[in-house]
Computed example of a mutant assay.
Amino acid sequence: MTFTDLKKAAYHGRPIPAGLSETERLQYIAARRIYAGYRSGEIDRTEAEPMLGKVQEYPRLMAVDKRALLRYVFALLCEDAGYGDREALGCSKLVARAMKAAQH
């Protein structure tokens, strides 16, 4: 699946597609949450576009940039989980594991 395909599915808030690698799952979760923030007015297009660029570049980002992106997504997912979004809780666990791995 290309990143463009991931973005399209994420934009529509679809469940995580089967068969994605862990990196692709992280990218999907991050893109879906950024799009949700954009749709809700939490962030605007000028904020969303650069973040989506970072999500696309995630596999090639330096560790410090990976951690920053993951921290941002983790915080949003925790907030969503606090509002009762059960899927956000599971997604936040995947992001937390990636944050730990990015520390090394």
Rank of each mutant, 00 (worst) to 15 (best):
R71K: 12
V55T: 07
G19T: 10
R67L: 02
D85W: 03
V73N: 00
E47D: 08
A101W: 01
D65P: 02
A48N: 07
L61W: 06
G53L: 08
L89V: 04
E57H: 12
D5A: 15
L77D: 02
F74W: 07
E57A: 15
H104M: 08
E57D: 15
L69A: 04
G13Q: 14
R25S: 15
R67Y: 03
P15C: 08
F74M: 00
R39G: 08
F74N: 08
D44K: 14
A81L: 07
R67W: 03
I34F: 12
Q27R: 14
Y72F: 10
E57T: 10
A31D: 09
G82M: 10
G19E: 11
H104C: 04
E22G: 08
L20G: 06
V55A: 06
T4S: 15
K100C: 06
F3E: 12
G41L: 07
K54W: 04
A10H: 13
R97P: 01
P59M: 00
G82P: 08
Y38C: 07
L77S: 02
E57Q: 15
G13F: 11
I29P: 04
S92P: 03
P59K: 03
Y83Q: 05
I34Y: 10
A98I: 01
A48H: 06
Y72T: 09
Y72N: 06
G13S: 12
A75Y: 01
D44G: 13
A75W: 00
K54D: 08
A30N: 07
K7I: 09
I29S: 02
E47M: 10
F74Q: 07
K8D: 11
A9W: 07
P59F: 01
F3V: 12
G90W: 03
E49W: 02
R25A: 15
L77A: 04
A101N: 04
L70A: 01
Q27K: 11
A102R: 05
K54C: 00
L94D: 04
M99N: 03
F74E: 07
E87T: 13
R86Q: 10
A10L: 13
M99P: 00
D5S: 15
A9R: 15
Y83E: 05
A101I: 02
G53M: 09
F74C: 03
E49N: 07
L94S: 00
E87C: 01
P50Q: 14
A68K: 12
L70S: 00
D5T: 15
S92C: 05
Y83M: 04
I34D: 09
L69E: 01
E24I: 12
R14S: 11
Q27G: 07
E47K: 13
L6M: 14
L76R: 09
A96L: 08
A10I: 14
K54V: 01
Y11I: 09
V95P: 02
P15G: 09
L89C: 04
I29Q: 04
Y72P: 00
M1G: 13
R45S: 08
T46V: 13
V55F: 05
A96E: 06
M99R: 07
R67K: 07
